[in-house]
Simulated scan of single mutants.
Amino acid sequence: MATATYLIALGSNRRSRHGPPASTLRAAATRLPGRVTALSPVISSAPLGPSHRRYANAAALVESELAPPAMLSALKAIERDFGRRRGRRWGARVLDLDIVLWSGGRWQERALTIPHAAFRDRAFVLCPAAAIARGWRDPVTGLTLAQLRARLTGARAIPRSRPRW
């Protein structure tokens, strides 16, 4: 396979042997398979689901010759090496690595869907991603990451109420 570019989302909300979640993300970024061409700043976000711990989130652009299934397998191996264990969905985790986008457009198979199914609704993915790849277009909507982020996080006008008299 020719070299492809991947947008990888990184998340953590538990300490690892590398330290607190933000340090865990920085350590994980050095292990991503391929050449990391950009790494976003780490942001803090509220958890989804039952976890009560805040998350550290980031995004990375990675150039790799791996096909999407091989990239997924490599990311899962890194998660395991960092101490991630299968457990409750949406629970606390040492490390979460997800393929959000890749330069090949769409990919669909039982174990992997690209673009990531929920990334358009997650500010904790879009904010770091737009910081490093604002012009990358979602192959489904045609919108850039900057546009998707603005749609999700932008200020919304407060509807004017009509006077009741």
Rank of each mutant, 00 (worst) to 15 (best):
P41R: 15
R93W: 03
A133C: 05
A133Q: 02
P68H: 08
P33L: 02
A117Y: 10
T141R: 08
S51K: 01
R110A: 13
G34K: 05
R26I: 04
A133E: 02
L143T: 04
R85T: 04
G105S: 12
W90F: 15
T153P: 02
R120C: 10
G83W: 05
A74W: 12
S51P: 06
C127A: 15
P33C: 09
L61D: 09
P163E: 04
P159G: 10
P20D: 14
A77E: 15
M71T: 11
R110W: 08
I99H: 07
L32N: 05
L145K: 05
P69V: 06
S161E: 11
G135Q: 14
G135V: 11
N57P: 04
P41N: 12
G142V: 00
L25W: 05
A60L: 02
V62F: 04
R160N: 07
T113N: 09
A150Y: 03
R162K: 12
A118P: 07
K76A: 10
A111E: 15
A38C: 08
V94T: 15
G142K: 01
A155R: 14
L32T: 01
L112K: 11
A58V: 05
A2E: 15
G105A: 10
A29G: 01
H52T: 14
R137Q: 14
L61Y: 08
R14N: 04
L66Q: 15
A60Q: 10
L97Y: 02
Q147P: 01
I43Q: 04
L148V: 01
V36D: 05
S64Q: 04
I114A: 08
P163W: 00
D96E: 12
A150K: 10
I78T: 12
W136L: 02
A46N: 01
R14H: 03
S64N: 07
R26M: 13
H52W: 04
S51I: 00
H52E: 09
G83A: 09
L152F: 06
Y55T: 00
T141E: 04
V36F: 11
L61M: 13
A38K: 09
I8A: 07
S16H: 11
A123M: 09
L101P: 02
R137H: 03
F124D: 01
R15G: 06
L25C: 11
W102I: 04
A155K: 13
F124W: 06
G104H: 14
R84H: 10
A9D: 10
A67P: 13
P128T: 00
M1Q: 12
V94A: 08
W102V: 03
D98G: 08
L75K: 08
I99G: 09
L112F: 11
L75N: 11
R162I: 13
Y55C: 00
R86M: 06
A29S: 01
R17Y: 06
N57R: 00
P139D: 05
R31I: 06
P41F: 07
L145P: 12
R84I: 06
R110M: 08
L145I: 12
T24V: 13
